[in-house]
Amino acid sequence: MEYIVETKNATKNFGKEKAVVGLDLQIPKGEIYGFLGPNGSGKTTTIRMLLGLMKPTFGSVRIFGKDIKKEKIEILKRVGSLVENPSYYPHLTAYENLETSRKILGVPKKRIHEVLAIVRLSDAANKKVKGFSLGMKQRLGIAAALLHQPDLLILDEPTNGLDPSGIIEIRELIKRLPKETGMTILLSSHLLAEIDQMATTVGILRKGELIFQDSIETMRMYAKQTISLNVSSSEKAWRSLLAKGIKAEFEKGTILLSERSNEKVAQAVSSLVQDGFSVYRVQEEKKSLEDIFLQMTKEEQAV
């Protein structure tokens, strides 16, 4: 398997504080890799190491099969990035900001207009970035990252602080890019829903350690939602469901259905109604990131 990004035992300490511990990232080509973890778990530190902005305390970082220590420039020529808050020069216009990178990257001028169009900032090209909204700055950051048509795009919390329409816009853009250009995207977020909607592969970081790395489908098994039923005389109702062969659990006065398909839910509800129980509420219960962590660590210990 060809990995675009591969780290081996990458570790970063700030003095005594361990920011990232023994990280083994593996990002296959053409994937949208969702890098999930709560704030402060080491995502940004990892990304800084991938970009050569920081050197790992030990361990290795390889991108496109090349060592970042030895061939940083060759690697960076093929990487576009947006790290944390968008970086920009407030005293320059959007166009001029892109021009500062374009000169170094040596791509034709018309590329500036192209990327501005991709992120829908063409109308604001000649306005100073100082006055931009956060969403516009974020989009400008993505435009800068796309200038040289990189093979790997690294986006750190790209929807942070955006309004819902901005989030949707960026999300569509990110999903579109690998299909149109074949690029690989590394995307970090502290929101499970966000990764769930965009990523194809997922890595989960917790307190500096990678506790999960697999396809999105595997992660969804952990993140599986359940249907909860609030009914009258709940314990009795639960037994009646079990008696009819419908799989369910009973927890703190609510019934949890393990099967979530429409059919199965309808079947359970109608059976309860027939048996004379009153159904008050049917709810989908989403698991929080913390729940998934708990579950993952629990299962790890069990193994």
Binding site: L53, I73, K77, S81, P86, S87, Y88, L105
Partner: peptide, 17 residues
């Protein structure tokens, strides 16, 4: 301007030494 809004970050993530 490099110190202001992450200019160093942007500049050094480009292929320059």
């Amino acid at each position: 301007y490099e110190h202001q809004e992450g200019g160093w970050k942007q500049l050094l993530a480009l292929p320059v030494t």
